[in-house]
Design a protein around this nucleic acid. Structure first.
Lengths: 198, 198
DNA sequence: CAAAATTAAATGATCATTTAAAAAATGATT
DNA sequence: AATCATTTTTTAAATGATCATTTAATTTTG
């Protein structure tokens, strides 16, 4: 019985509320009151716990990044070969816990707002370089050096694009289907014949 | 000498101003005054010409869609074979007139706001289905039916993803490079060996 | 009772939009 | 060309609405 402090309970509740309310109303349109109402609380209490709206959004994004990181680790732990390890990146992003309209729309809206806030931009940069280096590492044993960066950028742009489309599909997309499709793209990338005009 | 009416001149000026100011300050953060200041005018005159801020943003997006459509047409006109026609979609999106941080960031921010406004959503849907049917049509002679939809989605997600990354790269990306990379992906897709899983 | 958590109400700032007036362009009439 | 009435364009200032945040008081908890 983990004796949870109220502070931690509220923290989590408000983060879930922020995800839900933001998905409903949009990242910028959503108000403190709407977020608070999501769990029957009041706007002032958000400031009591988080200090400001920006900070709440920031913490919410960090929460998502933590889940993503942990999920990725799980998949890596059961990966048997380099190809599995590459797939693990997609599997983590497309995990059912993550691959919901709520999460994807928060994510996409957050990123598109990132360039306008030093605070958010930092988070964005950290994540970008994390993903980039994962891709590089996993592609290293699979793709010869001259094509590796091209392939990496293709895979990364594809990944971002899928999120964008999930954020905009109101019903969400079946995670299994997303994985299959990513799998197809991975096969393409790995089957590339050396000698294409790069 | 096309005798332009003031109304048309201002329309265009304010649209350029909206792109510039939005890129600087963000889609939601940007104010009427900031947009107007961009051309030494005043916020009230935007309402005089456009009726509201939303309407200005809407018209600005339509402007971008018009450019995109016209550019695509140009590339189609000089396409010699099916593969060229497929490339034309990417060439249009990656045309230097279009492929600037200003345009891409406006575009991405606009799309991510689209689900929260009936007005914008309509525009978004129209564009999505336009692009989708172009891809379908161009892929038809190139990819056998069972794989066609998968390939289309891969190409479309990739395209969206590239825009997202340009919007976030403050220096922009060399259009020629983007085309080369898209070309590499097209080659991959077309070289796909029938018989992959799925 | 004391500390922590919560809230209602006040505050203050920011904006889009409206309004009413001023300034510029237009053009018809000398 | 010059005058003046009319229309178009532009603006400064007023309006009103919306919010995040603060404050001070109240309720809950331990």
């Amino acid at each position: 019985m983990t004796r949870k402090k109220i502070r931690d309970i509220r923290h989590e509740e408000f983060i879930v509320a922020a995800l839900e309310a933001t998905h409903k109303r949009g990242f910028h349109a959503v108000t403190m009151s709407e977020i608070a109402a999501e769990i029957g609380a009041t706007a002032a209490s958000i400031n009591y716990y988080f200090g400001s709206k920006d900070q709440l959004m920031f913490e919410t994004m960090r929460h998502l990044l933590r889940i993503l990181g942990a999920t990725h680790k799980q998949y890596l732990d059961v990966a048997l070969d380099p190809k599995d390890r590459l797939r693990a990146i997609f599997d983590a992003h497309f995990d059912p816990r993550f691959f919901t309209p709520q999460h994807c729309s928060f994510w996409v809206q957050f990123w598109s707002a990132a360039p306008y806030s030093a605070h958010l931009e930092r988070l964005h940069r950290i994540n970008q370089s994390r993903v980039k280096s994962h891709f590089r590492a996993e592609l290293a044993p699979l793709v010869p050096a001259p094509f590796r960066e091209t392939m990496r950028r293709i895979l990364q742009s594809y990944l971002d694009g899928v999120w964008l489309s999930v954020a905009q599909a109101d019903r969400g997309i079946d995670p299994r289907h997303a994985r299959q499709e990513a799998g197809a793209l991975i096969e393409l990338v790995l089957s590339a014949e050396v000698g294409g005009s790069n």
